[in-house]
C-alpha cells in the first residue's frame, strides 16, 4: 500500500490574512495516476499546488512524497526530489531562444545526478526535449526567440522545462488555459503519452472536457475545501459539485 503511493497530502491548511485559501485538504496520489484538481475560481487550486511544491508554507498539515515528509522545504529541494511544476502565468526568458530557456533546469544538480555525474551537451538535450513537446525541429521553432512564440508554444515550453528535470511527479497548473482548441488537441496526446510512460501527473484545470478524457480521478475544491473525490463523471453528478460550478438554485 505504502509503496504504490507517491504523494500524500494530509489536512493541509493555509490562510492569507484571515482568508482561508486551503482548508484541511487531504488526498493521495498513486504512482502512475493522473489526478485532476478542479474547482471554481478562487477555490484554492493554485495555492494547493504552491503548498505541495514549497512556494507557500502550510499553516498546518503534512505533505509526504515517496515516504518522506517534504512539508515546508525549499522549492528547489522539492524540485530536486523530482516534483516538477508548471506555472499558470508563463514568464519565459523572452530575450533568449526557446531552447536556451531549458538551460536552467538542465543546469540543476538533479540532471547531473540522473545522467551519472555528467551534464552532457545541454543545447542538444534542450532541442530534443522541445521536440518531445511538439516543437517542430525542422522549422527551427526551437531556435526562435521566446518573445516571438505564440502563447501555446510558451505553455509547452513550460512543460518542457519540467520534463528537463525528468520528474517522478509532474504538476501542471492550468496548462491549457489560454491555449486554442487545436493547441490543446495537440498537447493532450503528449500528456497521455507521459502518463502511459509511468509518470504520475496532477493537473489543475478549468477545461473539464479535455481533462476528463485523460484523468483517472478528479478532486473538486470549493472555497478551499475538498468537496468530492472520485472518477470524473461520478464526481460531476454530485449535487454539491453542480452547485459549486453552476451556483445553487437561488443564485441563478
Amino acid at each position: 500500500m505504502e509503496d504504490s503511493t507517491i504523494l500524500t497530502v494530509e489536512r493541509v491548511s493555509k490562510s492569507f490574512g484571515g482568508v482561508v485559501a486551503v482548508d484541511g485538504v487531504s488526498f493521495h496520489l498513486e504512482k502512475g495516476e493522473l489526478l485532476g484538481i478542479i474547482g471554481p475560481n478562487g477555490s484554492g487550486k493554485t495555492t494547493l499546488v504552491n503548498l505541495i511544491t514549497g512556494f507557500v508554507r502550510p499553516d498546518s498539515g503534512k505533505v509526504i512524497y515517496q515516504g518522506k515528509e517534504i512539508t515546508g522545504k525549499m522549492p528547489y529541494k522539492i524540485a530536486e526530489l523530482g516534483i516538477a511544476r508548471t506555472f499558470q502565468m508563463v514568464r519565459p526568458f523572452y530575450q533568449l531562444p526557446a531552447f536556451k530557456n531549458l538551460i536552467i533546469p538542465l543546469y540543476s544538480p538533479r540532471v547531473k545526478k540522473l545522467r551519472g555525474g555528467k551534464y552532457g551537451e545541454r543545447d542538444d538535450m534542450a532541442v530534443d526535449l522541445l521536440e518531445e513537446v511538439g516543437f517542430e525541429r525542422d522549422s527551427f521553432v526551437p531556435y526562435k526567440m521566446a518573445a516571438s512564440l505564440p502563447h501555446g508554444y510558451l505553455k509547452r515550453l513550460e512543460l518542457a522545462r519540467c520534463l528537463a528535470l525528468r520528474p517522478d511527479l509532474l504538476i501542471l497548473d492550468e496548462l491549457f488555459s489560454g491555449m486554442s482548441m487545436s493547441e490543446v488537441a495537440s498537447t493532450l496526446p503528449i500528456i497521455e503519452r507521459l502518463n502511459e510512460g509511468g509518470l504520475s501527473i496532477i493537473m489543475v484545470e478549468h477545461r473539464l472536457k479535455e481533462l476528463f478524457r485523460i484523468a483517472n480521478r478528479v478532486i473538486v475544491l470549493n472555497f478551499g475545501r475538498k468537496i468530492a473525490d472520485g472518477p470524473p463523471h461520478q464526481v460531476m453528478k454530485k449535487e454539491e459539485v453542480k452547485a459549486a460550478y453552476l451556483g445553487s438554485e437561488g443564485e441563478t
Binding site: M74, A79, I104
Partner: peptide, 17 residues
C-alpha cells in the same frame, strides 16, 4: 540572469538560487 528575471522558475528548476 534567470534568477533576476524569474527566480521562482529557477527554483522550480531544482536550482539552489
Amino acid at each position: 540572469q534567470g534568477i533576476r528575471d524569474n527566480d521562482r522558475a529557477v527554483m522550480s528548476g531544482a536550482i539552489n538560487i
